[in-house]
Nucleic acid binder design. Structure first.
Length: 332
DNA sequence: AATTTCCTCAACCGCTCTAGG
DNA sequence: CCCTAGAGCGGTTGAGGAAAT
């Protein structure tokens, strides 16, 4: 007993779209819109296609103002930063890049950008192994990751590692993966803040390109309109009476958000998060930070290391979450 | 020139989420 | 509340082209 198919597979055409099909679909949507019902749409137009297929074709290819290929370095930066912060939430990442589709970004990441980065990481690793083979052995043994660590999370950790290595190659914490999962993120934050400050003092671009910081900061600041300020202001403020804003590298805080949201997810309340101005509020009226403290009090540790969760659902047209991205390239 | 291997990206699959009855 | 249909999303696949042998 499986799930009922969304359409009659036998009478549905699959595979690449012909130009005629494209024209039919585009003309219809241009004139009448989707009508809010993709499933019914192909029948109205006389297309032997699944509604989902029509939707995908429209969103990824036929929709106006779609850009294909030719990602700029700025786009690379944004993708990388958001990937590190929130993982493979392609639709959210795509929302930050006008004209780009989630599918496009996903493909670009999987086929090019990731390799570009990991290529640099291999270079770094080779240098490291010459410099310190002992430490690497320990590290390799410890790299046998917990099975509950998703690939996405691992990849993000790897990228963090790379960023940190490139910036601060001798940072023992980042070279010692065994430390990561064992520390509760809340505890981790105090440790990593030191590294964070250090790391953010130098200009850096993981792709090895020159970064126009001013430009990027402007762009990235636009992205940074939600959770990061939430986190930095609510949390850092509580820890730092002087309320000194520290641009941060994202590692610890990101993980804290992950854990927080994983906790909430596990409790089935994450859907109830809403963005209220610069802070999130639970529907019961308590701030998420107070909720976090409460959760922290109740739970001894959080074992979930799944991919990041970002608060993204709001009503139509509202752009959500976003941030996060305690962008890597901020210089102080 | 022929064959094999690698790479890219459009499209599909199956799952979760959401809204409406 | 519960159920269901449709929308949306992320992971995966495979056809076709490019590069290597």
């Amino acid at each position: 007993m499986g799930r009922a198919p969304c359409c009659d597979k036998a009478n549905v055409k699959k595979g690449p779209w012909s130009p005629e099909e494209d024209v039919k679909l585009k003309d219809y949507i241009d004139k009448y819109g989707t009508g809010g019902n993709w499933i019914a749409l192909p029948q109205k137009i006389g297309l032997k296609r699944c509604g989902k297929s029509c939707r995908l074709r429209w969103l990824n290819y036929l929709r106006p103002n779609i850009k294909h290929g030719g990602f700029s370095e700025e786009e690379d930066s944004i993708i990388l930063s958001l990937y590190i912060s929130i993982g493979s939430r392609w639709s959210i990442i795509a929302a930050q890049l006008p004209g780009r589709t989630d599918n496009d970004i996903k493909n670009y990441w999987n086929t090019k950008l990731k390799k570009k980065l990991l290529g640099r990481q291999k270079q770094m690793n080779r240098q490291d192994s010459i410099a310190d083979s002992t430490e690497n052995n320990i590290s390799n043994n410890n790299n046998k990751s917990p099975q509950n660590l998703s690939n996405s999370a691992l990849e993000r950790l790897q990228l963090h590692m790379q960023l940190q290595n490139l910036q601060s190659p001798f940072s023992s914490f980042y070279n010692n993966p065994i430390l990561w999962p064992k520390l509760h993120p809340l505890l981790q934050s105090t440790t990593t803040n030191q590294n964070t400050k250090l790391a953010s003092q130098e200009s850096f671009h993981p792709l090895g390109v020159n970064v126009d910081h001013q430009h990027n900061n402007t762009k990235l600041a636009q992205i940074n309109n939600g959770v990061s300020s939430l986190y930095s202001e609510n949390v850092e403020q509580s820890q730092n009476p002087a309320h000194e804003f520290q641009p941060n590298f994202g590692f610890s805080q990101d993980l804290r958000l992950d854990n927080h949201n994983m906790d909430l997810m596990n409790r089935g309340v994450s859907k109830e998060l809403f963005q209220v101005g610069n802070e999130f509020e639970l529907t019961n009226g308590s701030s998420w930070w107070s909720e976090e403290v409460e959760l922290e009090r109740k739970t001894t540790s959080s074992s979930s290391w799944g991919s990041a969760s970002v608060l993204d659902q709001t009503t139509e047209g509202m752009v959500m979450l976003q941030d996060y991205a305690q962008m890597s390239y901020h210089s102080v």
